[in-house]
């Protein structure tokens, strides 16, 4: 069989994925596996296909070839399980939107609510638990834009928690974040990992990868290498990723 069912401990499995936009190839024959309970760095140049891969994992782009499995299931099933959470980049959020922190986190629960999205007691409890986890509960009635930069990041992480996601996709989460916040976020990421969640983090910063990513995916129009950071994150592979060495 071409696509053997991944082992239970594989969170993300991508096989021979190709994506093109109107004939323009964004990603070609990309294969990778990310195991459960890991922090995986997604490293590549701008335009290397990082965003395309993230979009494909959310099912936003139709692959021209290949398959994606989350927790061994199809993307459709993964969406039904609310397994994948996307943590938006700060600049893509309307911080003036008239909505409270608690309401944003409640949006993580919508997938499991009825059509009218009337919160049950368990939903309120999940929101509270998630906000307590990221130490934002005292600010839960603030308008979302009244939070500081680091608090904003944590509010969206709380939403992913409330959603019950096992896979978190983070696009450049450290952009424009101060050192203190960055440390706090990394601590949270490591907690998430201990709980068995998998985080896929696109980043430019090599120090992040060696610092706290146990897995890494190197990408340049295709997946050049993936696996344990200690094995994959070599000078030679990096040269290939950033187009310095032989192509």
């Amino acid at each position: 069989m071409l696509n053997p069912r991944p082992q239970a401990e594989t969170r993300i499995s991508v096989q021979h994925l190709s994506v093109d936009y109107h004939g323009l190839v964004a990603l070609y024959d990309a294969s990778l596996q990310v195991k459960a309970a890991s922090i995986c760095g997604l490293v590549g140049m701008n335009g290397a296909g990082k965003s395309t891969l993230i979009k494909a994992l959310m099912g936003f782009v139709q692959p021209s070839y290949g398959t994606i499995a989350i927790n061994g299931h199809s993307l459709r099933q993964a969406r039904r399980d609310h397994a994948v959470a996307y943590v938006p980049q700060a600049e893509s959020v309307d911080w003036n939107f008239p909505i409270s922190v608690a309401d944003v986190v409640m949006m993580g629960r919508y997938g499991s609510m009825n059509l009218l999205r009337i919160p049950r007691r368990s939903d309120h409890q999940a929101v509270r638990d998630s906000l307590e986890r990221v130490e934002l509960w005292p600010l839960n009635q603030r308008q979302i834009g009244e939070l500081s930069g680091g608090q904003r990041k944590r509010a969206f992480l709380a939403r992913a928690l409330a959603q019950g996601a096992s896979v978190l996709l983070l696009d450049e989460p450290f952009a424009g974040v101060d050192i203190r916040t960055e440390k706090l976020m990394i601590e949270l990421f490591q907690q998430f990992r201990r709980e068995g969640r998998t985080l896929l983090i696109s980043t430019h910063d090599m120090a992040h990868v060696t610092g706290f990513c146990d897995q890494v995916v190197l990408i340049n129009k295709t997946v050049l290498a993936y696996g344990e950071t200690s094995e994959v994150f070599t000078q030679e592979n990096l040269a290939r990723t950033f187009g310095l060495g032989p192509a």
Partner: peptide, 22 residues
């Protein structure tokens, strides 16, 4: 009124809405 909450989410964060299957 029926789609009130979904429309608020759609205005605020359509990406998240899609990712949870809305």
């Amino acid at each position: 009124l029926v789609f009130y909450r979904d429309l608020v989410l759609f205005c605020f964060d359509p990406t998240h809405a899609r990712s949870i299957g809305i």
